[in-house]
């Protein structure tokens, strides 16, 4: 069975004063139908840009400079603008981080939902409205009929994110890219949204790329995980294996910096230093400036060690499982 999404050697570059800066640097991963991939990394690691590259929504002057984005066998990186537009929202949808900013403040919720329908299917206004109303009901918004006539500012943050999710689910897409959709919400709301999102995508068999910096979310949600640092995937694999026995020192550092019951009373480990900006990444392994295991070998660029589905990029990987 072919993968739903097969990203190969994706490079997304932004022109800088001294040549191109690679926000996404030779990223490769695969995603099967219905699978959930957790794309984890700090801010600036290139995880969001990866998502936008798949959507075809990289802000100019940035561009996809190399690589393939095979969606259902067709390369999106080569597709023309109209083809990409017809896929967006219909087969690949996206939910953004900040629900306060994603809805247009001067348009009614109903308008913003039905226009997404009209963009892809020929249906009557009444039918579009009915479908929008049903979608709002589906994501747990009470009295959806009246809410269609409301403006975004009349909704709470959590409710707005539900609306955004409802819009993303309108066309029952094959893939949803969720770019930290719960980060901006209160913790209790986070949990609600998370579980409903999970339920809906499972029911509809939607594959999900869940972009986050929060390992805790990914551990409960994802089938597989990909950890990004400095624009590259430094480690990927099944969620259980990676969390149990992380190979890359950065993955290990991330996991150990999450407080859990096991670590209570002990000092939380932290990764020393700060993420260098894009233009200041060291050559070779990008993490070596902060890595305790780095040596001369790390000045070379680490290749992929392992299979396409489960690999890491480290010359000195950890072998042992986490305590």
């Amino acid at each position: 069975m072919t993968a739903l999404l097969d990203v190969r050697g994706l490079v997304t570059a932004f022109p800088g004063p001294e040549g191109d800066l690679r926000a996404v640097d030779e990223v490769s991963f695969q995603l099967a139908r219905g699978e959930v991939l957790g794309l984890v990394g700090e801010s600036g690691s290139g995880k969001s840009v990866t998502g936008f590259s798949i959507m075809g929504l990289v802000d100019p002057p940035g561009r996809v400079a190399a690589g393939q984005i095979l969606f259902d066998g067709a390369d999106l990186a080569q597709a023309d603008a109209d083809t990409r537009r017809s896929l967006r929202g219909r087969r690949i949808a996206m939910v953004f981080q900040d629900p306060m900013m994603t809805l247009n403040p001067v348009l009614r919720i109903g308008t913003q939902m039905t226009e997404a329908l009209h963009a892809h299917v020929q249906i009557s206004r009444q039918e579009a409205r009915a479908r929008a109303r049903d979608a709002l009901g589906l994501v747990g918004i009470p009295s959806p009929e009246e809410r269609l006539d409301g403006y975004p500012h009349e909704f709470s943050g959590g409710m707005r994110q539900r609306v955004a999710i409802a819009i993303a689910l309108l066309h029952r897409p094959d893939l949803i890219i969720a770019d930290e959709p719960t980060t901006a919400l209160d913790v209790t709301i986070q949990a609600q949204i998370l579980s409903e999102f999970q339920k809906l995508t499972e029911e509809q068999g939607t594959a999900v790329i869940w972009i986050t910096h929060d390992l805790a979310i990914v551990s409960g949600l994802a089938d597989r995980i990909a950890v990004m640092y400095g624009g590259r995937i430094v480690e990927t694999g099944g969620i259980e294996e990676v969390l149990r026995a992380p190979r890359h020192p950065y993955t290990r550092g991330l996991i150990r910096s999450v407080p859990s019951e096991n670590t209570r009373g002990t000092r939380l480990a932290q990764i020393p230093g700060v993420t260098p900006s894009l233009g200041r990444m060291p050559a070779g392994c990008a993490f070596r400036s902060r890595c305790g295991r780095a040596d001369a070998a790390c000045a070379a660029r680490p290749g992929r060690f392992g299979s396409l589905g489960a690999y890491h990029r480290c010359f000195h990987p950890h072998e042992e499982t986490l305590a």
Partner: peptide, 11 residues
């Protein structure tokens, strides 16, 4: 963001 989201809807 809402302009980007509008694009993401395929408008």
């Amino acid at each position: 963001d809402f302009v980007k989201f509008a694009r993401a809807k395929g408008l």
